[in-house]
Nucleic acid binder design. Structure first.
Lengths: 203, 203
DNA sequence: TCCTTTTTTGAGTGATCATTCAATTAAAAC
DNA sequence: GTTTTAATTGAATGATCACTCAAAAAAGGA
């Protein structure tokens, strides 16, 4: 039997998420990766194929965790709209944690960073965001059926609005602003959504 | 008297805005710049000092134009809130123009791209965004005095909410979605703001 | 202990990065 | 036409980029 790999692959991808999330794709060099993952070029390329390959795995892990945390919030709340509210509130808390690699979303950072030439990455990011939209839309269909939404409110459009709120919250949070201001912003976004819900406002 | 410069400096910065807006700072090389501005390294460095120097001038031009278009919308509208609404509407139209270098905002792209090491750029971008927030806050103070806002609505917080809406609108628009969907999103954001205005909704 | 098999290492690859500068070009003054 | 002065050119710089690969190391089976 041969030599067995000494490093933990999952841990490596974990570290890659932190690194890419903090620095973005383009500003992360293989030197950075070698250091953060404590791996040498040969091992890195044998394991992940390329910088791109590692990034895709990191983005997948990050994306699946974001999706999971949204799913949890929606499941654990009495109504869909309270689920969305508590997700936004929790998000404000999480991204302002001092050890968070960045406040902005890695997927959105990549969406804004990627050029037309990087067609594969562009497609991957769009796919991830479409999945979130779809999940939100499905939940909001349910909300509509359960009478949480005002008449005329379109679940699909509302899903995109909520996604834009998330993007806006986290992008604005990337500015030099305090945790309290980020929390206030999340509250105001929750209030803003009440324009589409049946009174009384769902908190 | 010596030889006179043959290139148009303003036109050069103009082209730089388009280029940086489309590609972002990091993904734009001096080769790209030489081609887009039709200038050779020597002229570029004699004129702008560095890639960073050119980018700062481009960002300044871009930022001042964004600020101007917001100012215009607020001035030309009967109320502050209708001004904000029409700004968002116009924005949706402008960014979905086929020849727009990108739908996302260059300032936000830079905010999400820049690392902690690039302290100067980070500060510049934060300054720009603070100026927009301040201008919005001032306008919303006026709106509050004129009775456009609901009781308890904080102009400063509302300014950050509106800025987050703009960021969200333009970032989501960067996804593979249609012009109609971007326009719908802008309308829904306008509706969402009605949670903070006195009825009837300001369109 | 030695053999087999796989992983790990790290120096080295060519390409591209932002930047420099000596040589060349050209416009105005005389 | 000559001189003066600044703008333009483009080859060259060293650094860094993602990536490769031959050699060394190590773990299990015999």
């Amino acid at each position: 039997m041969p030599r067995v790999a000494k490093f933990d692959r999952d841990k490596a991808v974990e570290n890659a998420v932190r690194l890419f999330w903090e620095r973005g794709y383009g500003n992360t060099s293989m030197k950075h990766i070698e250091q953060a993952l404590d791996m040498r070029p040969g091992s890195l390329y044998a394991t992940f194929g390329s910088k791109d390959g590692l990034f895709r795995e990191a983005l997948d892990l990050y994306g699946s965790r974001m999706a999971q945390s949204l799913r949890r919030a929606l499941e654990q709340s009495p109504t869909i709209m309270t689920g969305i509210s508590s997700y936004l509130r929790n998000l404000a808390g999480e991204i302002t944690t001092p050890d968070s690699p960045a406040r902005a979303c890695l997927v959105v950072k990549t969406l804004l960073e990627v050029t037309a030439e990087q067609e594969d990455l562009r497609a991957l990011v769009n796919q991830r965001l479409q999945m979130v939209e779809d999940h939100l839309a499905q939940a909001l269909e349910t909300a509509s059926r359960q009478g949480e939404l005002r008449q005329g409110a379109d679940p699909r459009r509302l899903a995109r609005l909520v996604q834009a709120q998330m993007m806006g919250l986290r992008s604005l949070a990337q500015r030099d602003i305090s945790e309290a201001e980020v929390r206030d912003l999340a509250e105001d976004m929750i209030s803003a959504l009440s324009a589409f819900t049946v009174p009384p406002v769902a908190h």
